[in-house]
Design a protein around this nucleic acid. Structure first.
Lengths: 369, 369
DNA sequence: CTGAAAGCGCTTACAG
DNA sequence: CTGAAAGCGCTTACAG
């Protein structure tokens, strides 16, 4: 047995034990592990050697207590069924690690648990909170603000302008889908909504309706899917049972769009897009699967998370809590679930995008489809 | 403004401040928030009133330091693209909350980061660790064991029998798929592997080969997909380019099976299952989507997580670390991606299962398909 | 049942 | 650069 690196399980080693072995003060040990602290190379070397021999690791809990910085971010994400959220979580994990922060994840609960979640999150003295689940009342966000703890809403905003948020331009996205569908020759429009009072739903819906209006169309027929596949399928059935069924459906997210396409194909025997067009939102992984090939608006997780952490870190570092809103652009990714318009399609990085304002460029520089 | 419940942002309230307002000792405040501590109803009421007025919440960090129990479980899940893992995460969140534990999530990293992840997890003095990602070296698990911190491997085991684990019976699952495919009249078998040296892959592969052998067939043709959709698609292409392409493919998980089915249909114009059968593993949500309707073996997240936490809590409570292995049953869920055998299908809770040993029951009690 | 006091493992002025 | 000491916000014997 090599006496140096072996340590039998027991209480973890403390800085005092390291100090004793190294023959220095406990302060010196602490300084060795505090970047930028004043310590001579010689002392430092002695401490490092002793620490290695003993298997010492600073106790982050004790450090948090004295610094009142836990370096933990609370992430509230009630719901992971929609693939968009796991993707975000992975990106969050990566970016947080680079910032040397950690993630306390709260997931798998419904509105009823929301009080207890708030309580837990407060007890752990997280340095900041990311709220990313639609189901949660915005009251939670305001409670955190009131408690003086930095919060950023991810992929949603609140009615009252009190808490920072990061979203993509959902209104513009909805509008562009209207442009795209109208240009594609559709005439009867439907919208399958998410949770009716969620901000993403309101903005996508509002943008879509405004875009249709700009082309002289009335508002779309609306059914509510509440972001669930089951209700989205029901909504699709209702829509197809109408006297004048739609020839184009904008579904508030890809997660529901999958269920809608399945219903259209397998229950109604319809061809998508030959008989009816479907457009989704989010550009989640399944949207790219050949079996669905959903035309959709992207919500780029990487920049969204980066913006979220930027906002959060600013709040943490400054202590200031003036609400800021970052709205990132998305792109209409054209695949095969909706009929194509005659112009406005461009190629970028192997994807086809709809950018009607770029149609000149398409004609002169890019290959027209 | 109601002076009672409003508190301006600032440093959080401490037990001493509550004590002062309530006119009791700091100990009394602590006891009020310690279940089972000795405190009179009268004192307790005074403390509770003061706490409410001040917006006091016990500091979990300080509590952890003195009790040396953080009530935090480290969850290591490098990879969330496969829907199985987000599902597990949600269940984990729910069950952990019921136990009054919290989840520090480590995700979005590769093998290169694994040392730093281990370091971080140790610094936060988590009470236990759940390792659920295939990419991570089992060395990490053994390091944790060596450090005396309870670990349970989720959905994998290590070669050496030193750390506890929870899996489903992957060997039996692979075997059952062989039974099912042989009974369905298939004759040329292929296997698209996950990460070659992962335990789930070895067991599924081994069970499949053993099952085929039991029916007098040689080993399946094997290609490696490494649990990625991209490599699975390549594997499918290679298989179909063979002089004698398979008429049945067992894909090591549903996540890859989706890509395989897409490749078969959209690149080779094949009908699934009329031309070729595909069976997956995990029973993730997309497997149930009508567009794929994948026949697959279930890995029930709820009981798997329950078993994992049971094992972990036992270790935490007892301090004992004798490795235990829990192997849960899965079921072959029959959908439409593989040709059906003439018997052995039964209905349970709206799903069709393949249970050849129950075929008598099918004939007498259940409706045969 | 209650309070005074010690102590968990650190960081950080303070004085040298 | 270094060490002795105070203190972060709690829990928990200990004595009453």
């Amino acid at each position: 047995m090599d006496g140096r690196s072996v340590r039998k399980p027991g209480p973890p080693v403390t800085s005092s034990q390291v100090a004793e072995v190294a023959g220095v003060s406990q302060s010196a040990v602490s300084r060795t592990f505090t970047p930028g602290a004043s310590i001579s190379p010689k002392t430092r070397a002695k401490v490092l050697a002793a620490a290695r021999d003993l298997g010492y690791r600073p106790n982050a809990i004790a450090r948090s207590l004295i610094t009142s910085r836990s370096r933990i971010i609370g992430v509230v994400m009630a719901y992971l069924e929609n693939q968009f959220y796991p993707t975000v979580l992975e990106v969050l994990g990566r970016q947080l690690r680079q910032l040397n922060y950690h993630m306390l994840l709260f997931t798998g609960f419904d509105a009823a648990d929301s009080d207890s979640v708030f309580d837990q999150i407060m007890q752990y003295r997280v340095d900041g909170i990311i709220l990313a689940s639609t189901g949660l009342s915005s009251a939670l966000a305001e409670e955190c603000m009131a408690a003086g703890i930095p919060v950023v809403l991810f992929n949603r905003t609140t009615q009252r302008d009190v808490v920072s948020s990061v979203t993509t331009d959902n209104h513009a996205g909805g509008w562009r889908i209207a442009d795209f569908l109208v240009a594609g020759g559709h005439r009867r429009f439907a919208y399958i909504a998410g949770v009716a009072d969620s901000s993403t739903n309101r903005d996508r819906h509002g943008g879509f309706a405004a875009g249709l209006a700009a082309h002289g169309f009335g508002p779309p027929v609306v059914r509510v899917g509440n972001y669930t596949t089951r209700q989205a399928a029901i909504a699709a059935r209702e829509l197809m049972g109408l006297a004048e069924p739609p020839d184009a459906i904008f579904v508030a997210n890809d997660h529901m769009a999958v269920a809608v396409i399945d219903t259209l194909r397998h229950e109604f025997g319809l061809r998508v897009p030959a008989d009816i067009s479907v457009v989704g939102y989010d550009n989640v992984e399944p949207a790219a699967w050949a079996g669905y090939a959903i035309t959709t608006v992207s919500q780029p997780a990487e920049p969204m998370v980066a913006a979220t952490l930027d906002l959060l870190m600013r709040q943490i570092d400054s202590g200031a809590i003036a609400p800021t809103h970052r709205v990132l652009p998305g792109d209409l990714i054209v695949r095969r679930s909706a009929r194509l318009p005659p112009r406005g399609l461009i190629e970028r990085d192997g994807a086809t995008l709809y950018r009607p304002d770029h149609s000149l460029a398409v004609l002169t520089k890019d290959a027209a489809p």
